[in-house]
């Protein structure tokens, strides 16, 4: 996919999301409007602390589960899946 200058594209639950370089994967999930995980009792959860502490922002990135998305920057073509509904 051709990238517009100054932006990169990742997919969140299969939907393309265009972000500026330096965007965290957590912010990309918020832009996509999806939750990050489902709690043990089945509740939707999304990022809380933004600083790597709470683990609410865990998602699967390129097949690797349980990644703290607030501490990881988007890279072109990254595939992010959350346990929420599709974006």
């Amino acid at each position: 996919m051709a990238e517009a200058a100054g932006s990169i594209t990742v997919t969140v639950n299969g939907v393309a999301v265009r972000v500026t370089p330096g965007t965290t994967v957590a912010s990309a999930t918020l832009i996509a409007g999806t939750q990050t995980r489902v709690s043990v009792a089945g509740e939707p959860r999304a990022p809380l602390c933004g600083m790597g502490i709470c683990f609410e922002c865990r998602v699967t990135i390129d097949g690797a589960p349980h990644q703290r998305s607030c501490q990881i920057l988007c890279e072109p073509g990254m595939q992010v899946t959350t346990r929420g509904e599709p974006a």
């Binding site: 965290t24 509740e43 959860r45």
Partner: peptide
């Protein structure tokens, strides 16, 4: 307080600095 879009104050600040419009 566990609902999506309830977050920390510094937490939101970090999200915005991390690209959230």
């Amino acid at each position: 307080w566990t609902l999506p879009n309830v977050m920390g104050a510094g937490g939101l600040d970090a999200m915005v600095r991390g690209g959230l419009p």
